[in-house]
C-alpha cells in the first residue's frame, strides 16, 4: 500500500503533490500530517499553503520565490526522512447527535438492512472514534474513517433535494456530517446541533485533519438546548486529547 518512496506529482506551475501510497489508511495519513508539520517548521520560503488529503499533501508555492526543482528536493527529503516530525496528540471531539425520528429518517432502514435493531445501530455508530482523514469538498466537511461495516448501507436511489446542516448519514461503508444545507443521497440516521463551519468563529472549522471525533447519543431536549447555546456561540465543544498510539499505530 505504501510506495517504496514518496511520489512527487505535478500540479501545474504552482503546486506539487507528495503522495505516500495508494490506499486509505491511518498510517499513510499520518505521514501526510508529519510532512505538513515538517514543512511548517522548516518555513520554506515560497511555500504558501498546504492541503492534506487521505494519502497525499498538496503543496502550493510561488515559483518566482523558489525554484520548483529545489523545492522538490526539499520535499522529497522531508517526506523520506525517518527522523520525521512527532505528531502532537490528536484531539477527540465529541459530536452530540440526536438519532432517529425526524432527525434520522433512515435509521430504521439502516437497521433493517443490516438485521439490527435501531438501538444496536446507534450503539455501533457511537461506540468508536472516527479519524478525520481530511477536510474538503465543502467548507468544514470531514472525511471520516473507522465506521463499523455492520452498519453500512447503500445511498438513496434518488437523492433528497435538501438535507439540513448537521445531518449525520451513512453512504456505503462511510459515515459523515453535512456542514451546510445541501442536496444529498446519504442515509440519514441522526443530526447534530453543532456547526461544523461558522465563518464568524475562530477557528471557523470545527475539525482539522488528524482529529478524531466520536458521536454521543442525545435526547430531543438536549438537542434543543445545545442548539440554542451553539446559536449564541456559548456551547463549549467537548474535546479531550487522545493518548498517542492508542488508535493510530497499527
Amino acid at each position: 500500500m505504501r510506495y517504496k518512496e514518496p511520489r512527487l506529482l505535478t500540479g501545474g506551475d504552482k503546486s506539487i503533490f507528495v503522495e505516500f501510497g495508494d490506499g486509505i489508511d491511518p498510517e499513510l495519513n499520518q505521514r501526510v500530517r508529519r510532512l505538513r508539520l515538517a514543512i511548517e517548521k522548516k518555513k520554506i520560503p515560497g511555500v504558501t499553503e498546504t492541503v492534506p488529503a487521505y494519502r497525499s499533501l498538496l503543496v502550493y508555492f510561488e515559483p518566482l520565490a523558489i525554484n520548483p526543482r529545489k523545492l522538490r528536493e526539499i520535499l522529497f527529503s522531508l517526506a523520506e526522512s525517518p527522523e520525521s516530525e512527532a505528531l502532537p496528540e490528536s484531539r477527540l471531539i465529541e459530536v452530540p447527535t440526536a438519532y432517529g425520528g425526524e432527525y434520522g429518517p433512515d435509521l430504521a432502514f439502516v437497521a433493517a438492512h443490516n438485521g439490527l435493531s435501531e438501538s444496536e445501530v446507534i450503539q455501533l455508530h457511537t461506540g468508536t472514534p472516527y479519524l478525520v482523514y481530511m477536510i474538503g469538498f465543502v467548507p468544514g466537511f470531514p472525511y471520516l474513517g473507522g465506521m463499523s461495516s455492520r452498519i453500512a448501507a447503500p445511498r438513496l436511489e434518488t437523492p433528497r433535494a435538501k438535507i439540513p446542516a448537521g445531518a449525520v448519514g451513512i453512504a456505503g461503508g462511510q459515515t459523515g456530517i453535512y456542514p451546510a444545507d445541501s442536496p444529498g443521497g446519504w442515509r440519514l440516521i441522526g443530526r447534530t446541533p453543532l456547526k461544523l463551519f461558522d465563518p464568524g468563529r475562530e477557528p471557523a472549522a470545527l475539525f482539522g485533519a488528524g482529529d478524531y471525533l466520536s458521536f454521543t447519543s442525545i435526547t430531543r431536549e438536549e438537542f434543543a438546548r445545545i442548539k440554542a447555546d451553539v446559536e449564541r456561540r456559548a456551547y463549549p465543544v467537548k474535546e479531550t486529547l487522545m493518548t498517542r498510539g492508542e488508535h493510530e499505530n497499527p
Binding site: G11, K14, S15, Y54, S56, L58
Partner: peptide, 10 residues
C-alpha cells in the same frame, strides 16, 4: 481516485 487536493487550473 482516492480524493486529493485540487490546484487552480486543474
Amino acid at each position: 481516485i482516492i480524493s486529493d487536493g485540487i490546484p487552480s487550473g486543474a
